[in-house]
């Protein structure tokens, strides 16, 4: 009986380390095993509760009281209580006291150390998501521009974070570049902060939002897959913005916006479609995602695009007045809005 319980406990501990202990019976078994193992772990569990009730007594006295309590507890829980009661009696008290003090010191030290090494623990948790080869990253970047027309069977979405994270940082750098050349002035905060906030805000915010929607309409996608999908979807944005911040043809931008931005959006939409069931959920999920994704590219282009032409002029700087981030009357925006009005109907 005990060995099977131990095996079950081990198995649940093994799976609990990955699933962060989802099964309630797993932890119960663990406790059972610990209770059967030794009294030291019982003391550890007693630590927090028993300390508060003896505040006004002397420390020595308190420790002895605690000791008696622990001994009683141990005697109650253990099966072979007679033997242990004798062992934890007054004769072994001094040794027990020393051991408990040492144990407490050890626990405090361990807590400190674990707090200090928390960073490294988190790194280990994240490590599987960064387990990629350069070839894989390259292939995924290329695939992010190729929509797959298979919507009857769930498409495979790689849960990986290296590519998305690097793409977001690349987008930050490109935005900084765009802000510099356009002479954007931000009243509160720095260019860097704004660029980072915009990119990470979009990536994390839209991923969470779409994940929430997907949860509502019962689509089969995890948060990790959503982050990866949207992150690789930013590759098109990076390419478009890098080109259009340097080559100032509005026509070129619209072509690239529809072509490159559209392809990367279609890729994400196709992946989402294959994992959703039903017309209305598909329309809701994919409509929201494509609208947000296309509008974001439009926003990034026009918010930080230099309207006064010439790269060298702005590099020489002070001769042109810095632009403010206010609503401007851009004639192209009107056509853009008309295109946008036609877009959701087309899909």
């Amino acid at each position: 009986g005990l060995t099977t319980a131990a095996a079950a406990g081990k198995m649940s501990a093994g799976s609990g380390s990955r699933n962060t202990n989802t099964e309630p019976w797993g932890s119960f078994d663990d406790n059972l095993i610990q209770g059967g193992g030794s009294a030291v772990i019982d003391m550890e569990n007693m630590d927090d509760t028993s300390g508060s009730s003896f505040e006004d007594m002397g420390e020595m006295h308190q420790r002895m009281k605690e000791e008696e309590e622990v001994a009683a507890e141990a005697a109650a829980t253990e099966d072979d209580s007679a033997e242990d009661g004798e062992f934890l009696g007054m004769k072994g008290l001094k040794g027990q006291l020393g051991r408990q003090v040492a144990d407490e010191v050890w626990q405090a030290g361990k807590r400190q150390a674990s707090r200090a090494f928390n960073l490294y623990a988190n790194i280990d948790i994240l490590r599987p998501y960064f387990d990629v080869e350069p070839v894989q990253v390259r292939n995924r970047l290329i695939e992010s521009m190729i929509p797959v027309r298979m919507i009857n069977f769930p498409q495979k979405i790689a849960g990986e974070l290296y590519g998305p994270l690097m793409l977001v940082f690349t987008l930050v750098a490109i935005l900084l570049h765009g802000m510099k050349t356009s002479g954007t002035v931000i009243r509160e905060g720095t260019l860097m902060g704004t660029a980072i906030g915009t990119c990470f805000g979009y990536w994390l915010g839209v991923s969470s939002f779409i994940y929430f929607l997907a949860y509502l309409v019962n689509a089969q996608i995890t948060m990790l897959q959503m982050l990866s999908l949207l992150g690789y979807g930013l590759f098109g944005h990076c390419a478009v913005l890098l080109i259009t911040y340097n080559i100032h043809f509005h026509f070129l931008f619209y072509v690239l916006w529809l072509l490159v931005g559209g392809l990367s959006t279609l890729r994400m939409v196709a992946a989402l479609l294959s994992r959703t069931v039903g017309q209305t959920p598909r329309l809701l999920l994919c409509g929201t995602l494509s609208l947000l994704h296309m509008l974001f590219l439009l926003y990034l282009h026009f918010a930080y695009h230099k309207i006064v032409e010439g790269l060298l002029d702005s590099l020489e700087g002070p001769n042109l007045a810095p632009m403010q981030r206010v609503a401007r009357d851009v004639p192209e925006l009107n056509t853009t809005l008309r295109i946008l009005g036609a877009l959701p109907r087309a899909q």
Binding site: E133, P134, F169, T170, A173, L176, K180, L315, G317, P318
Partner: peptide, 27 residues
């Protein structure tokens, strides 16, 4: 086999700093 993946952010980091230096213009 992963050198390229490590070098890319380094490249980006120095690129941003280099860009800041290039676009600097004194008052």
């Amino acid at each position: 086999n992963r050198k390229a993946l490590v070098v890319y952010p380094v490249f980006l980091f120095y690129f941003v700093i280099g860009w800041m230096i290039l676009t600097f213009s004194p008052s």
